Computed example of a mutant assay.
Amino acid sequence: MLVAWAVAAVLTLIGWSTADGERQPDDLWLLVVLLAIPGLIGLAVAWGIGSVASRQRNRERA
Results as ranks from 00 to 15, higher is better:
L43W: 14
R55V: 04
E22D: 12
R59N: 01
V10D: 05
A53Q: 14
A53I: 05
L13S: 13
S17A: 14
W47V: 15
A19W: 03
S51Y: 04
L40I: 15
G48N: 09
Q24I: 12
A44Q: 03
G48I: 08
L34C: 07
E60T: 05
W16L: 03
V10C: 09
A53M: 12
A9H: 09
A62H: 06
S54W: 04
L2S: 11
W16K: 02
I41N: 00
D26E: 04
G39E: 04
A8S: 15
I14E: 02
V3G: 12
I14C: 09
A62F: 05
G21P: 06
L34Y: 07
T12I: 15
V3Q: 12
L35G: 13
L35N: 02
E22S: 05
L43N: 03
M1Q: 12
S17R: 15
W47G: 15
S17N: 12
D27H: 12
V45L: 09
A53Y: 03
G48F: 10
S51M: 08
R59I: 00
D26H: 01
A9R: 04
W16H: 14
L30E: 06
W29V: 14
V10Y: 10
V7S: 07
G42H: 02
I37N: 10
W5S: 13
I14L: 15
L30P: 00
L11W: 09
S54A: 14
V33N: 00
R23Q: 03
G50D: 15
W29T: 13
N58R: 12
E60I: 04
V7A: 15
V10P: 05
V10N: 06
W5I: 11
N58I: 03
G42T: 04
G50R: 13
L28V: 14
R23V: 01
A53V: 09
W47T: 15
L11Q: 13
V7W: 06
D26P: 05
P38F: 04
V10T: 13
A44C: 09
G48Y: 09
L30H: 10
L30W: 11
I49S: 01
V33E: 00
L31E: 04
A8P: 06
D20A: 10
V10F: 10
V7Y: 07
L11K: 10
A36N: 05
A19H: 01
D20H: 06
T12G: 09
V52Q: 00
T12F: 02
A53R: 15
T18N: 08
G42C: 11
W29D: 12
L28Q: 02
V45K: 00
T18C: 09
R61N: 06
L34Q: 15
L43R: 14
I41Y: 01
A4R: 12
L11M: 15
L31G: 12
L11H: 04
P25Y: 00
P38I: 02
W5Q: 06
D20R: 08
L30D: 08
Q56T: 08
R61T: 05
A6G: 14
G15K: 01
G15V: 01
W29M: 13
A62W: 02
G21Y: 04
V7D: 06
S54Y: 05
W29G: 10
Q56I: 06
A8V: 07
A6M: 14
L40N: 10
T12A: 11
M1Y: 11
W47E: 10
D20S: 15
T18W: 02
W5M: 08
P38E: 03
G15L: 08
S54I: 03
W29Y: 06
P38T: 07
G15M: 01
